[in-house]
Design a protein around this nucleic acid. Structure first.
Lengths: 350, 350
DNA sequence: CGTAGAATTTGTAACGATATATATGGAGGC
DNA sequence: GCCTCCATATATATCGTTACAAATTCTACG
């Protein structure tokens, strides 16, 4: 497929019926090229598809003509005829979007999709409806050729549904299902394990961790990495209750402040998100505690933000843009078929 | 148009050929409904469109049947036949996306578009190509029914092109063109004016402002508001050189640090973005200066971030999500036609 | 020189919807 | 009883593309 989103601008084309060219020159179609070359529409179609059934010389002639008139295939017609949409659907919960999680992913995805015929369509999912709804809708009505989504759960209904339907998808995060499926994940076990070790090495003796909501797989990975580290080292620990990484920053701050006022307060914090880390910082600051001296904090960093935060805190970086690139790349492979599922899985290292 | 994205799930529908129903029950089309009701396809089409030419009783019967079988019109077919795409294109530069600018807008837009037949398609624009390119492409190839974009310039080529083509669009930010056009903007003049007044009232005597790149209209609005305030008050001022709101945080930090080491350093800062505000904070912090005592800072806030930043700084809020909602809403009106341009313009107050 | 068989090209139908033109049926006027 | 007219429903063509089957040309070989 030599041309599809070619950006060739030849005629000035003042968007409308220009009087310079003879006849009202409309959007060129296969028929236009057929008339220009004296070939049949079918032949033109195949020639543009570089079908070896068409003589090489003919193919080149047709492709040259197509380029000259600025032909681009009509996506609606292609879609109607072939059933393929050339659309990839990214299901996004606009409320989950704290500090550019989605944007980073979109950046990576669009970078990978550039130069392919695929468009990225944002399918919003609002948390007041079951998360399977948009997935069913897309599959049932063939709204896209492939689906991308995040916040995967251990026994994710979307994954089960898509596997059963044989519909291409890549999710951010793993499941614990028996059937393997494509995914891109981050090594959250390692993240909390390393974070805890860092804190303990720095002298912390009671660690406090804020985890994602329990329904997500990465809650368990984070918990497990954390637990392994604190048990290996035999230090005190606690898991934040009543708040998660999805909680409002104010709620996190209040909870942390309250906890610090109780007996036996923690001296080391682990946050899997930037907003909650900021909340921990504001809470401790407001209590007159100094980060790096009285308490320590390790946060997951997904933007350049913490490079500017003072006092400096330790961070471990997760590259969401790279995750997006990978997800789109794996989905392209999956849609092309033939790649074994084992090669459609990636875990980004800490 | 009574149904379009109705989310009615009736049959279990194990996505494939279920053996329970007689015949391989495929995606229902107009033909399906025609056979079920004993009417012609044309009649069904009109009935679903609530065409008064069709008897009321027939319309209801058809619509009931459509709902029962879970009919949804095929968008590709509609698009091919009518030329309308049901797509709204948001042109986004993924590199401009610092801390969720795009995500906030997307949140607002999808909220407005919910319940309409329109999909939001992200058309990425990378800064290594002219910003008119994606616009031409969308218009020339009818990739969408309307366009949304941001970072408007005083004599914006995209606006000129779209106006001439008569193609619906709403941009974030104004132009200085003679022809009126739909836009949503924020009162950036007021923002810098108020910010400067705040600083001066607090005792600042030399203000330092970081502006957007000069090519954008809001650079001039911000500059003008700032200049008006400092002239009214007769205080010292300077406009950052060599850095803009688009500069990397490190560059901003270095520039600010360098400036503070020179003679006659500023004591009040105005930042139109969160990242540059963080950079100012880190620069002054690293010099041992205390925000609120030695220097002051007023920043534009577009997320909940600064509620957690310590020391607390003054912020003025811009609701990007609301801007997105408005932009989508105005675009819907524009596409429906008939609304005078004057009613398709909005400036969000400070 | 006729023809098999490959190499090319072409014609027709279909995807699912809608715009336009046409047909059907019954009520009412003369 | 014939014709008009209105209300309602149907038939046909079409959007631009591709799958499939059929046709045409060319080469080569007995």
């Amino acid at each position: 497929m030599p041309l599809d989103d070619a950006e060739d601008e030849h005629q000035p084309n003042t968007a409308g019926a220009s009087a310079s060219n003879p006849g009202p020159h409309r959007k060129p179609t296969l028929k236009t090229i057929a008339e220009l070359t004296g070939l049949a529409v079918t032949t033109v179609s195949r020639a543009l598809g570089d079908d070896p059934l068409i003589a090489r010389e003919t193919r080149q002639r047709v492709q040259a003509t197509a380029a000259k008139v600025g032909y681009l295939p009509d996506r609606a017609a292609q879609r109607l005829r072939t059933g393929r949409t050339n659309v990839i659907s990214l299901i996004l919960d606009p409320h989950e979007e704290i500090l550019g999680y989605g944007t980073s992913m979109i950046r990576g995805m669009t970078a990978t999709l550039r130069g392919t015929p695929y468009h990225l369509v944002i399918t919003p999912h609002f948390s007041d409806t079951p998360h399977i709804d948009p997935v069913r809708h897309i599959v049932r009505n063939r709204m896209a050729d492939g689906i991308l989504f995040s916040r995967t759960e251990p026994s994710d209904e979307r994954v089960k549904f898509l596997l059963e339907a044989g519909f291409p998808f890549v999710c951010h995060g793993r499941t614990e299902l028996a059937t393997p499926h494509p995914y891109v994940d981050y090594d959250n076990y390692r993240f909390t394990y390393e974070a805890a070790k860092k804190l303990i090495t720095s002298g912390c003796r009671r660690l406090f961790i804020i985890l994602p909501p329990e329904r997500f797989t990465f809650h368990h990975h984070m918990r497990h990495g954390f637990m392994t580290a604190v048990r290996e080292e035999g230090v005190g620990f606690e898991i934040a209750e009543g708040i998660t990484l999805d909680s409002k920053a104010d709620a996190v701050r209040d909870r942390v402040a309250a906890r610090m006022a109780e007996r036996n307060p923690p001296d080391g914090f682990i946050c899997g998100g930037e907003v909650s880390a900021m909340a921990v910082m504001s809470a401790t600051h407001d209590l007159g505690l100094e980060i790096g001296r009285d308490v320590r904090l390790v946060a997951k960093q997904t933007s350049g933000l913490f490079d500017q935060v003072r006092p400096r805190i330790e961070t471990i970086y997760e590259d969401l843009s790279e995750a997006g690139r990978l997800m789109a790349g794996l989905l392209l492979k999956r849609m092309a078929g033939a790649t074994p599922v084992g090669e459609l899985q990636a875990v980004l290292e800490v």
